[in-house]
Design a protein around this nucleic acid. Structure first.
Length: 285
DNA sequence: AAACTTCCCAACCGCGGGATC
DNA sequence: TGATCCCGCGGTTGGGAAGTT
């Protein structure tokens, strides 16, 4: 289908932004807020395409950007999140306040990849380098991990990991007993990440002071436990531990604003954690 | 000091997909 | 229901900075 160009290429500036352009953009967004990027350049008197404005704002001008070097903690968090999510930079960025997807992507490509290689870890598979080849071979044979990612947009990201392979993401935490019946082999490394995944309408917010800032600490036992005892375990795939949830509850029934529970779109899957008895259910409220 | 190479990151590009007409 | 609009994403690139010879 025909697609109109995002802007009049002939009459737009490209390349590095000038201070004046930055100031115009900042002033306009301060006065009018974000949104309608397509018409923004005209309204703001900028000879840029809307996309370029959006990128400039998000990656560079936004007041809440952190800037500066990544800390060791951020490094490790990025590595873990990448192991979990792959190249979903925007999702990863959602867990790192003040960092942008572009920044993280660049940092990954320039630093972390090298760091992992130095550790003898394959940056793509997160497996030991000598095992990576084997793993690739196995992946060709095993059913593929299915990562369903609904698109972003107005913070309405939803995704779920539908797993039927042992190394997929939607296993429960390590301290959650899975099953007596031939559980799948554990992943090669402990991620230390609670895989309760959900993404809400709200952007990431820092947890309140009294909440442990331990980003991905297992603390949704009860959510998981809601399915425990059955032959199958219910795994709420809330990404609230990944900061994409704004701290609000999901419909897995873990406290919070009931209205959010009612309105939050949520996928829940019954996964074969115990091996077998798998049915999958999807709930969208 | 100059030439060359490597690194880094801001910005661009093309595409997917939801929303709207 | 299909066409189009618009936003946002991930991959890639270009140019300046930093390092090396």
């Amino acid at each position: 289908m025909g697609r109109s160009p995002c802007c009049e290429k002939a009459h737009t500036n490209k390349g590095a932004w000038t201070k004046e352009e930055d100031q115009r953009l900042i002033a306009y967004i301060k006065a009018n807020g974000e949104g309608c990027w397509r018409s923004l350049p005209k309204s703001a008197g900028l000879l840029r395409c809307g996309k370029s404005c959006r990128l400039r704002w998000i990656n560079y001008l936004r007041p809440d950007l952190k800037r500066g070097n990544f800390t060791e903690e951020e490094d490790e968090l990025i590595i873990k999140l990448h192991e979990l999510l792959g190249n979903k930079w925007s999702l990863i960025a959602g867990r790192l306040p003040g960092r942008t997807d572009n920044e993280i992507k660049n940092y990954w490509n320039t630093h972390i990849k090298r760091k992992l290689l130095a550790r003898g870890v394959d940056p793509q598979t997160h497996r030991p380098l000598n095992a990576a080849a084997d793993h690739h071979q196995k992946q060709l044979q095993a059913p593929p991990r299915r990562f369903v990612a609904a698109p972003a947009g107005h913070h309405t990201d939803h995704f779920a990991v539908l797993s039927n392979s042992p190394d997929a993401c939607s296993h429960s935490s390590d301290d959650e007993p899975s099953s007596e019946t031939s559980p799948p082999p554990p992943p090669p490394r402990h991620l230390g990440i609670d895989l309760n995944l959900s993404i809400s309408l709200a952007p990431y917010q820092q947890p309140p002071e009294d909440q442990p800032s331990e980003p991905l600490k297992q603390e949704d036992d009860d959510a998981v436990a809601s399915g425990a005892g059955n032959a199958t375990s219910t795994v709420c795939l809330c990404l609230n531990r990944l900061g994409l949830h704004g701290g609000e509850v999901c419909s897995c029934g873990r406290g919070g604003d009931p209205s959010m529970q009612a309105s939050t779109h949520m996928f829940r899957f019954i996964t074969p954690l115990g091996g077998g008895h798998n049915s999958s259910s999807t709930t969208m409220t």
